[in-house]
Design a binder for these strands. Structure first.
Lengths: 192, 192, 192, 192
DNA sequence: TGCTAAGCGAGACGGTACGTCTTGTCTTCCG
DNA sequence: CGGAAGACAAGACGTACCGTCTCGCTTAGCA
């Protein structure tokens, strides 16, 4: 649909990259709370209007920057059993949530999603739902194998898994650890 | 230690109440994102300085207002078994999270706790830790009864319980429901 | 040095004019003491920052507004004699000091010059010194004509002339009148 | 009518003195522009209300403090001639205006008199008119002696004398000096 | 000796204005 | 026409003082 050349000067990829980079750096240096559009524009050497033209809010800049930096796909390769698949998924997740810069970014985006409803919808679609879909692949595979416990229901497994990860990130600020992974697997994919 | 009268004009309880009330009302009407200290002061008929003198941020006003409104103690009365105690606790929690005004308030406070580190510490101490302590009472009672499963460890039970509740509140915006309560109990306090 | 176009949006002449006008009107209506930058901005339909960007204080706004309104050059045209030149100068001055709005403005600026040292320097340079220079032209001309009394010295003539005008304005609030003009001329430029 | 003792606790002379002293010291240290009633009360160890009970503005405190400190009567003792009386008066005046603390105080009070009309009336009555009356004594004595020039009229002499002194104080910030005294006497009380 | 009345230090109150910061829009010139 | 620069209107921020109002406590004269 986009193959026909657009009229006028094309969007500057350099400005886009500079903006995303500046937003990530500034957020890391001064924190999301003190992040401003003016600051990002100044750091990036970019006009403010250029930012307003392409992103609806500073949270959207970070969402795109985060998506670009850490391509957030989690491995859903087949490890032979639901239990092994789940362990791999959880360990990848806790790797991710343990990276301090990334954890700070996710905290800020989840916070903004509560305050700005419209960004919340975009964040859910662009991040939260993708993560649930990744887990859904594992669960579907287990169901086909006949490997999946009757309870809890698939959606509730996701609520428990992601709930625990997010609660650790947002409320206790302790990262996910190996003990918690073991306990979750013991509960959700028992051996017997 | 404080019973000796302080010198100077005593704090006005009327102003305190008016501020808390105004903050709750305005947050409900226009949302936390558009809430301002100026607006609260105007609605309450109170000087801005009076607010700044007693609360460090608008989130702290809402924290105190929420604590005053819904005295957040959850029932930890003894229902005879860990399973019954846990069910009562979860049902009370999901009652609370289902109250739309209260859920919005908690979302906003959890969001602010991510953005403002110092408020985060106060929020954790005044709300999150109290909730964990309530659950700890139930778990201790179960341990004394010999009613408590070996795994998961008590702290992790709390992470799973509160994680699931908060994830539903923050990420899916669907309240806790009876199915989820059943599944959680099935996992954490199995019958056999 | 400035002829090359500046980058960015140029200063809005409309905002500048509106600010000067609003300041003069408000000062006339409510008096200098009750004049506020917020009020000027509101009346002018201008952002506060636009005012702070271009003027260091409300007194400077009025100084510029006054300079713009009554272009304060006094006639120094040659009337043939020191006596006639001096009379013309004094009569123009007392015309000016008799205009009630202008007298109020000058009173306020002289007052502010006492309280704010830095504005005092600007006021001296932009107004008081210019007036002394105008009188100096008359005195120089008289000296060339051989028309100038030996005493008092030129600088002291200025102190006496302007001192009397300002004292009437500030201390007695009676404007300069014809009698005082006659007496000053009789003293400073006697006939014999 | 007031000689009968008032009921209630009498005014504290200690608080009055502390207030006047604190006002003078603070004005000298930080300048009239940054002087505040709160600051005076704090420095004096006095309640704000105690100040508001007795003085209508900070300028009135300084007016009373100045009057107390330098009792401002100028010598009007008879020196035998108008010329000698005038010289004594001018020299006493320029002594006064040369004292830097006092000059700053007078500048501030004259400035405030322009901005606050009601204080202006009090300042005129308590200070400016008294000074004119002192000069009037000298002029009356000269008239009785037959020593007084026909022109300028007595009131205009005062305008010229005080005008010159104040102009030097307010506009040029150079104190009155011996040359100016000589020239003024030469003009207003010529020898022949 | 106790009562009444006003002044006292302290400090919170409702407000106003400050000067700064940020937002999102606009207006210019350059490439 | 996209982009950098930067001025613009709007308005919230947190601070400083304002002038007023309670407090509990003197400190006097009057009973």
């Amino acid at each position: 649909m986009n193959e026909g050349r657009m009229p006028g000067r094309p969007r500057s990829e350099a400005s886009r990259q500079a903006t995303l980079m500046a937003a990530l750096e500034l957020a890391a240096e001064i924190g999301y709370g003190r992040l401003t559009i003016e600051g990002i524009a100044a750091r990036a050497g970019v006009g403010k209007q250029t930012i307003y033209r392409w992103w609806p809010s500073k949270a959207d800049i970070l969402l795109e920057a985060g998506a670009a930096k850490a391509d957030l796909r989690v491995p859903v390769t087949d490890h032979g059993s639901y239990r092994a698949d789940l362990r791999a998924f959880l360990e990848a997740s806790y790797q991710m949530a343990s990276h301090p810069g990334l954890a700070d970014l996710l905290r800020a985006l989840m916070a903004e999603a509560q305050i700005d409803r419209e960004f919340g919808d975009r964040f859910r679609a662009a991040f939260l739902e993708r993560r649930r879909e990744a887990l859904a692949v594992i669960i579907d595979r287990a169901r086909e194998r006949g490997d999946l416990p009757a309870r809890p229901a698939p959606g509730i497994v996701a609520d428990i898994v992601f709930g625990t990860i997010w609660y650790r990130t947002l409320a206790t600020r302790r990262p996910l650890d190996a003990d918690l992974v073991d306990d979750l697997i013991g509960l959700l994919a028992p051996t017997s």
